[in-house]
């Protein structure tokens, strides 16, 4: 396959696949509000928050995994999808925030403020969202030009902070000694350590032959 083919077929397919969880959640809430049986269970807000939160973490991990994966296979083509995956991470964190603020707190902003002040995991979550916000806003080619590539790159390193805060958000949320948040945290830590290791050693990824896919 050529680069053009991957772009033409790969992007819509990936877009469709990454949309599916959000599509499912939307359908379930639509069923809930029309009084129909739905997949949201006994405590719909809890399911909705957890579901959108897990998918945010998965999208963030996927976005952080693109570069290491490209380096691993020594091909540049995965980088073509990085922006889309990153934007999906931002999309899911927005859905997650919407679920929590709109459906769980029912837009009670004083309750949001109390949550931020009293619960450190909420602070981490809000922090992760605020890290991703400028990245989504400056995701276009125009912004790369406006900021200049080095500055744009430096700004987009905020995604590391977002990953770190998202992992902490989940770790501090659960009660009891739980395995799942530790697994997410370990994966994110590995993806960040890979970058640290590279920055100390060989520098940016150099592909053997950038034309070969």
């Amino acid at each position: 396959m050529t680069t053009a083919q991957i772009r033409i077929f790969g992007k819509p397919i990936l877009f469709f696949m990454l949309s599916l969880p959000a599509l499912w959640l939307t359908v379930q809430w639509a069923l809930y509000f029309s009084g129909e049986p739905n997949g949201l269970g006994i405590n719909p807000q809890e399911i909705s928050n957890r579901f959108s939160g897990r998918w945010t973490l998965r999208m963030l991990i996927l976005a952080l995994a693109v570069s290491p994966f490209a380096a691993l296979i020594n091909k540049p083509w995965p980088l073509m999808f990085r922006r889309m995956v990153g934007l999906f991470a931002f999309f899911y964190v927005t859905v997650h925030l919407g679920s929590y603020l709109g459906l769980d707190l029912a837009l009670d902003f004083s309750a949001l403020w109390r949550d931020i002040m009293e619960r450190v995991y909420i602070l981490f979550g809000v922090g992760a969202f605020l890290c991703l916000l400028p990245l989504a806003a400056t995701s276009t080619k125009g912004w790369i030009k406006r900021l200049g590539a080095p500055r744009w790159k430096a700004l987009h390193r905020l995604v590391y902070m977002a990953g770190l805060l998202a992992a902490l958000h989940f770790l501090f949320l659960v009660k009891g000694n739980r395995l799942e948040p530790k697994i997410y945290a370990a994966i994110i830590a590995a993806l960040l350590l890979w970058r640290l290791y590279r920055s100390l050693g060989s520098g940016p990824i150099k592909f053997g032959d950038s034309h070969l896919l």
Partner: peptide, 19 residues
């Protein structure tokens, strides 16, 4: 008495939409 994970000031009665 605040809790670091959940609001203890409000609760959702199962079946209700609002807290």
């Amino acid at each position: 008495v605040r809790h670091p994970r959940w609001s203890q000031a409000t609760e959702r009665r199962i079946g209700d939409f609002r807290r």
